[in-house]
Amino acid sequence: MAERTITLLIVDDHPVVRNGLRGMFAASPDFEVLGEASDGAEAVALAAMLDPDVVLMDLRMPGGGGVDAIAELTRRGLRCEVLVLTTYDTDSDTLPAIEAGATGYLLKDAPRDELFTAVRAAAEGKTVLSPAIASRLVSRVRAPGNEPLSTREREVLILVAKGTSNREIAAVLFISEATVKTHLTHLYGKLGVKDRAAAVAVAYERGILG
């Protein structure tokens, strides 16, 4: 049993998922669910009001995604730790969430005991990554130049090649300008360039575009 009760905020756009998680944590005396949010904007507002130890954050939600919410929680300096709980494990989801300030990243198929352990670790500020995510990040660090562009990064690059601004890209792809900048940073790193023009030139050279 934990030395103290860990307080939680559950963020997911599916009521069934929220109810299931609430029931799971309610069955243990180690945890207390303070509230639920259905999108990122609501999550930020409730986290500021309820002051939970840990925010269980889904990523892709209409009305406000998880990455932007994590970045805003970090910007505000709230004490809560964010544990991403999602079905998505691609680099285009994982890396922006971690860079925005998430303490951990877990997939929704994680067993109950693994989830409980991850929440306890997150509450202590410890990094928690699902095995699949951890191995991918290790591979990326070992061979950063050989990483292929994600689907989203490729979409951003195609729009950049057409002379589209960050604001316009955000509107076309239904993401925030901050997320566009994050994708640009990642694809610059993968292509070994420092600006938009060089990215487009290298992408044509490598046959990524055209």
Results as ranks from 00 to 15, higher is better:
residue 1 M to V: 09
residue 3 E to W: 02
residue 6 I to M: 07
residue 6 I to A: 06
residue 8 L to S: 05
residue 9 L to W: 01
residue 11 V to S: 08
residue 11 V to C: 06
residue 12 D to Q: 03
residue 12 D to W: 05
residue 14 H to E: 14
residue 14 H to I: 04
residue 17 V to C: 09
residue 23 G to Q: 10
residue 23 G to K: 06
residue 27 A to K: 03
residue 31 F to C: 07
residue 34 L to T: 04
residue 38 S to T: 01
residue 38 S to K: 15
residue 39 D to K: 08
residue 40 G to Q: 12
residue 41 A to D: 06
residue 41 A to S: 10
residue 44 V to R: 06
residue 53 D to R: 02
residue 54 V to N: 05
residue 54 V to P: 08
residue 54 V to T: 08
residue 60 R to K: 13
residue 61 M to T: 00
residue 67 V to Q: 14
residue 71 A to K: 02
residue 73 L to P: 08
residue 76 R to D: 15
residue 80 C to N: 11
residue 80 C to G: 09
residue 81 E to W: 00
residue 82 V to K: 03
residue 83 L to H: 03
residue 84 V to W: 14
residue 85 L to T: 02
residue 87 T to K: 00
residue 88 Y to W: 13
residue 90 T to E: 13
residue 94 T to W: 00
residue 94 T to E: 00
residue 95 L to V: 07
residue 95 L to C: 02
residue 96 P to F: 06
residue 96 P to E: 05
residue 96 P to M: 05
residue 100 A to Y: 14
residue 104 G to W: 11
residue 109 D to H: 11
residue 110 A to T: 14
residue 119 V to A: 03
residue 122 A to T: 02
residue 122 A to S: 09
residue 124 E to M: 12
residue 128 V to F: 14
residue 129 L to G: 13
residue 131 P to G: 12
residue 132 A to C: 10
residue 134 A to I: 00
residue 135 S to D: 08
residue 136 R to F: 04
residue 137 L to C: 07
residue 139 S to R: 15
residue 140 R to Y: 12
residue 144 P to H: 11
residue 145 G to C: 10
residue 146 N to I: 01
residue 149 L to M: 06
residue 149 L to W: 03
residue 152 R to S: 10
residue 154 R to V: 06
residue 155 E to H: 12
residue 159 L to V: 04
residue 159 L to C: 03
residue 164 T to G: 00
residue 167 R to A: 14
residue 168 E to W: 05
residue 169 I to M: 09
residue 170 A to T: 13
residue 174 F to S: 14
residue 180 V to M: 01
residue 181 K to Y: 02
residue 182 T to S: 15
residue 183 H to I: 05
residue 185 T to Y: 07
residue 185 T to E: 11
residue 190 K to H: 03
residue 190 K to L: 00
residue 192 G to I: 05
residue 195 D to W: 02
residue 197 A to H: 04
residue 197 A to L: 06
residue 199 A to N: 01
residue 199 A to H: 01
residue 200 V to E: 10
residue 201 A to C: 04
residue 204 Y to H: 14
residue 205 E to T: 05
residue 208 I to L: 15
residue 209 L to N: 07
residue 210 G to P: 10
